[in-house]
């Protein structure tokens, strides 16, 4: 365990109190049919910080993540109660435009899911959709997004090739670049490394630490070391509730709750 703290060193020096509240859950509940998946969530996620949500599978961490860009709306049996604020605006107001919302929130999924198109078209998908640019402007967005995902040098000569030809880690970075292309404020990552090998994982983690300079990064992971390595803030969830939330170093070194301690020390999960 001790070397994870070492990596965590710069995070410990960071003071979350100075950052702004970017995403705030207030009394938020969510059901799938009769299944109460999120229970009275109250949490404030800071801007320009990596916040990790961890917990055993089925604890609701992915559902919580998907509440931030209202991707749960796709599921017909889904009901919500309570509010989620982004920059002070309640995104669960009836007149909220979910498509505008999802434009400001990028999402990266568990399994790399590039579209069956060329690398270029994958990245250009969002900008074209929202008519942000065309021609050279679009080329520039594609390049910047790929640079943002630290993939540019690897793929710049084969932008027209099918994205399926890339390795798993590269595919996931294409997906990150795709999320960056629409210039979001917040990036949601749902276990982005769970389908990748250790080397690709290291690259994605390094990328996450870079991304937080410009974006608010929310990460869901079941990998404790990953939470410890890349996040400043960590929340531990269990059966739909947030059990503990605080600076990552505090949560790992000095867990206040017995459940958290059991999870961290590997007694369940």
């Amino acid at each position: 365990m001790s070397n994870t703290y070492m990596i965590n060193g710069d995070a410990a020096a960071f003071s979350p109190r100075l950052a702004l509240d970017k995403v705030v859950f207030k009394g938020f509940n969510l059901w799938y049919g009769d299944n109460h998946v999120l229970k009275d969530i109250d949490i404030a996620i800071k801007s320009n910080v990596v916040t990790a949500f961890m917990g055993p599978s089925g604890c609701g961490k992915s559902t919580l993540l998907r509440s931030i860009d209202r991707m749960n709306d796709i599921i017909p049996s889904c009901k919500t109660e309570g509010d989620v604020y982004i920059d002070g605006r309640n995104i669960y107001e009836p007149d909220e435009d979910v498509y505008e919302l999802r434009k400001t929130v990028g999402m990266v999924f568990q399994k790399p899911n590039p579209f069956p198109m060329s690398i270029y078209d994958n990245i250009a998908y969002g900008p074209r959709l929202h008519k942000m640019a065309s021609g050279e402007g679009l080329d520039k967005i594609v390049e910047e997004s790929l640079r943002g995902a630290v993939l540019w040098d690897e793929v710049k000569d084969r932008l027209q090739e099918n994205a399926f030809g890339l390795s798993g880690g590269q595919q996931q970075r294409v997906c990150i670049a795709r999320a960056l292309s629409i210039n979001p404020d917040i990036i949601l990552m749902d276990e982005p490394c769970s389908a990748l090998d250790p080397i690709a994982t290291i690259k994605i983690e390094a990328l996450m630490r870079e991304l937080k300079d410009k974006y608010t990064v929310v990460l869901v992971t079941h990998n404790l070391q990953q939470a410890a390595r890349v996040s400043e803030m960590t929340a531990f969830m269990y059966i739909g509730e947030i059990i503990e939330f605080g600076a990552t170093s505090d949560v790992f070194e000095n867990p206040q709750n017995e459940l958290t301690e059991n999870y961290i020390t590997g007694r369940f999960g």
Partner: peptide, 11 residues
């Protein structure tokens, strides 16, 4: 996954 990725882009 394709549908999710597209919807998450605001489509």
């Amino acid at each position: 996954e394709y549908r999710e990725a597209s919807l998450a882009m605001g489509a």
